[in-house]
């Protein structure tokens, strides 16, 4: 029983990590209908910038939380600039191009970011300093530590803030208008380019937050970390219904749970024929089943259509 509970805790933590990254995908998709495949790399840059800041400030003697805050601000700033740049250079000129053209530029951006990061930060794996409290708690036989609790809470808080932003503010209304019908929104006086830029910057700031959370949890960063994380988060976003904020959260948590329960129990369920090596097969299998019955994800399509 305590093993099952532990697996659920593991799944929720891992799922929150996916959800944080998936929210970034979904923000952009909700407005533009475009999968920002470079999002995973922005997460990586966020983590790397934060690493550099903490290394610079390590000798300053500031309390860890202050260092973390400064690192967060800097890396969010860098990521926002990066997000703005990516949109301006790689996506905006292609807004009326065939649907797959931005996919290729996104792949190009990913390759460029990865290689730039390799030049700046080297090929090594770096240890990410433990700035958040790491003390562990027992929860009915399952272990959870502070960082993990913080990750779950941050993911929920970010989702709540985004929901408020999209549904309760002027900017949010403009976003929904652009998502619904860009030309009509422009006629109504919405600055489409401005709204899209802001969306990208918001998504990228989220990526920075996600990057720091992931690094703080696993304690290790590397220029290649964005690729696999981005892929998983993308899967999570689609599972929940891409473009839907609640869907991204749900998809993330679900994917995390499927993975940990799959890895934990596949062996017992299949009489030892399949093991934890089929964890991803199991996850994709669930995804395919879900999409067969609900072709646009668990919670449906884009934000605007629901609003």
């Amino acid at each position: 029983m305590d093993i099952l509970l532990q697996q659920i805790v593991n799944g929720l933590v891992q799922g929150s990590v996916y959800a944080l990254v998936a929210l970034g995908y979904t923000m952009v998709y909700g407005i533009l209908g475009l999968i920002n495949f470079a999002h995973g790399e922005v997460v990586m840059v966020g983590a790397m910038v934060a690493l550099t800041m903490t290394q610079l400030l390590a000798a300053s003697g500031l309390p860890p939380l202050v260092i973390l805050l400064i690192a967060l601000m800097t890396s969010a700033g860098v990521c926002m600039a990066l997000g703005y740049g990516i949109e301006r250079i790689a996506y905006r000129p292609l807004r009326n191009a065939p649907r797959l053209a931005p996919l290729i530029t996104a792949i190009g951006v990913s390759i460029v970011l990865q290689n730039l990061a390799m030049m700046f930060w080297g090929r090594e794996y770096h240890a990410f300093p433990a700035l958040l409290p790491h003390s562990t708690h027992m929860l009915a036989g399952a272990v959870i530590n502070d960082v993990q609790i913080i990750i779950v809470l941050v993911a929920l808080a970010v989702m709540a803030c985004l929901l408020l932003l999209v549904h309760r503010t002027r900017l949010g209304r403009a976003m929904r208008a652009v998502a619904e019908n860009p030309s009509a929104a422009a006629l109504m006086g919405v600055n489409i380019n401005g709204v899209i830029s802001v969306t990208f910057m918001l998504g990228s700031a989220l990526a920075a937050v996600a990057g720091i959370m992931v690094s703080a949890n696993y304690g290790i960063v590397h220029y290649y970390m964005g690729a696999i994380l981005g892929l998983k988060a993308f899967t999570a976003a689609v599972l929940g219904g891409i473009g839907n904020l609640r869907g991204a959260m749900l998809g993330g948590l679900l994917l995390g749970l499927i993975e940990s329960l799959g890895a934990g129990y596949i062996g017992d369920l299949s009489g030892g024929f399949f093991g934890s090596n089929y964890q991803d097969v199991f996850a994709f299998f669930v995804l395919i089943i879900v999409l067969i019955f609900r072709p646009s994800g668990l919670m449906g399509e884009r934000v605007a259509e629901r609003a």
Partner: peptide, 15 residues
């Protein structure tokens, strides 16, 4: 089992 790209091993370690 895990993969050479994974960073989260909590599930397999728990089992």
């Amino acid at each position: 089992y895990t993969t050479d790209k994974a960073v989260d091993f909590t599930a397999v370690l728990t089992s």
